[in-house]
Each structure stands twice: as C-alpha cells, then as structure tokens.
C-alpha cells in the first residue's frame, strides 16, 4: 500500500543532530514519526496509509468532531514537544503530501526562506493573552469612578421624582456605553504596554461565551512573539497588571509558550 507523508514542522539541522528526535507514534497512532533530511532542511513527518487518508477519506474524518478533536490535539502536542526541544516552523494541521519527492519539490524552492525563518525564530516564544471582563463589576467601577457619570448623578438628585425615573434609565444606558468604552481602552492600553517588549504581535478575534464556555466576556485576545530573555519581564508585567485590576472585574489569562503558529511564515 502506498504511503502519504504528513508534515508536522521543520527544525534546524544542527539542533536535530545534537538531540535526535524522540520516538513517538504519528497521526494514525501506528506509523512512527521520523525526520527527512535533505540539503539541510529537516522535516518532521510520519507516514499515513493512502487508503485511509486520501482526500475523500480525510474529508469524512474531518467532518467527525471527535476525530478532529483527537487529531488536532495530537498535532498540537507533537508541535509543543518539538517546540520544547528545538526551534520549529510549525505547519498547519493536515499538511499532507503524496510522497517524499512531492514534499521535497515543495520545500526545495523555500530553502533560503526556511533557513532565514529558523534563524529568526531561534530563542523566541509565542504567548497568548486574553482579557476577560466581569460586566457587573466593571459597571460598578465605571459608575463609581467615571466623571461624566458622577456629574450626571448629581444632576439627577436635584430633579423632580418623575424626571428622576426617566433620567436614571438614561444614566443606566450611559453607564453601559462608558463600560464598553472602558473595555476597549483598558485592553488596548494593556496591549500597548506589552507590545513594547515584544518582537511582534497580532490581535485575534474575541470568542463569544458559547465558544469559551465561560461566564465572563472575552474582550481581548492577542498573541506576542518574545525573545526568550524578555519572557520573564513580560510575565511579571502581566501579573502586576492582574493584581492591580482584579477588583475591577478584569481577568488576564496567559498561555504559552506556543510554537510560533502566528508568526512563522514562508511566504
């Protein structure tokens, strides 16, 4: 039976020869992973039976959420492990070639670019930061500290009871608006502060509560590429921001180090 080749990522020649690839089972949980080395490009791959992984079969598989969950995590865990051992250019999930020749035909023209990327990514880490916000707490804090709202409250106290009712409703709307503004400015300010110590950043989409399964709202989601030497400072900066702002309903969540999924590029 013919074998297809599943590509996990590319690692530098000198690093893989200094510390050989640990043995682990590939995506199908049968074939072992190995490296293909040609002209100094070292690709971490595994074989897959063509019968089970040709396009039509793969499409069926990827339509099964359970399969996708298991295999996406397999891909990710392999890349995490590679990332802990080597500098790595991580591939997108399910990058599959018909055979080694075909893989080589794709990689050969990128030889120069691959070398540059590996050099650039060396000693760098990708981290993800999300900011969540407890809306109730934020509203309270906005209502207590916002000058516009303070002034409005004083105004309302002087009014007749009938008007007070209407104006209080309007004030509620104003608090909502100010809270929304505060979410944007707070998050952008934190991001800006962190950006200073990073090589590169990218702002991602916020996920809604259905996707996160959390009770608080995600109001910021971004990734940072850092030199390893700056990671400690970056993390302690986030910790001090977290300590400072917990009371107002902010929750900063940090994950990493990730393989440089968002920053590695061969185009």
């Amino acid at each position: 039976m013919d074998n297809l080749i599943y590509l996990y990522g590319i690692v530098p020649e000198n690093e893989i020869s200094a510390a050989p690839l640990p043995s682990f089972k590939g995506l199908d949980n049968e074939h072992a992973a190995y490296t293909i080395s040609i002209n100094g490009i070292n690709a971490v791959v595994c074989n897959l039976d063509e019968a089970g992984y040709k396009e039509t079969e793969l499409e069926k598989k990827t339509n099964d959420p359970q399969w996708l969950h298991e295999k996406a995590f397999h891909h990710h865990e392999v890349l995490l492990d590679l990332n802990n051992r080597y500098t790595v250019i991580p591939m997108k999930f399910c990058t599959i070639y018909e055979n080694a020749d075909s893989l080589w035909n794709k990689l050969e023209p990128l030889e120069q670019k691959i070398a540059e990327q590996l050099k650039w990514l060396k000693n760098k880490e990708e981290w993800n930061m999300k900011i969540y916000c407890d809306d109730e707490k934020l509203r309270e804090s906005v209502a207590a500290h916002n000058l516009t709202i303070e002034a409005k409250k004083k105004e309302i106290e002087e009014m007749s009871p009938g008007r007070q009712f209407l104006e209080k409703k309007r004030l509620d709307q104003l608090i909502d608006q100010e809270a929304l503004k505060e979410k944007e400015t707070f998050s952008a300010r934190v991001h800006e502060q962190l950006t200073e110590m990073c090589e590169d950043t990218s702002v991602k989409k916020n996920w809604n509560k259905k996707v996160t399964g959390r009770n608080d709202e995600m109001c910021w989601n971004s990734v940072y590429l850092l030199s390893t030497e700056n990671v400690e400072e970056y993390l302690s900066e986030i910790k001090s921001l977290q300590d400072k702002w917990t009371r107002d309903g902010w929750h900063l969540e940090i994950t990493g180090p990730w393989p440089a999924y968002h920053f590695a590029s061969l185009t």
Binding site: E59, T95, H262, S265
Partner: peptide, 18 residues
C-alpha cells in the same frame, strides 16, 4: 488549540487538500 492548529501555522500547499 483548534483555532491555532486548524487555521494558523505555516501553509505550504500539500497534495491532499482538506
């Protein structure tokens, strides 16, 4: 994890498309 590995990472056109 899903969003990152399914959507990010380096793309070099593979032979098997999904």
């Amino acid at each position: 994890v899903l969003e990152t590995v399914l959507d990010k990472g380096v793309v070099i056109a593979g032979d098997i498309r999904v």
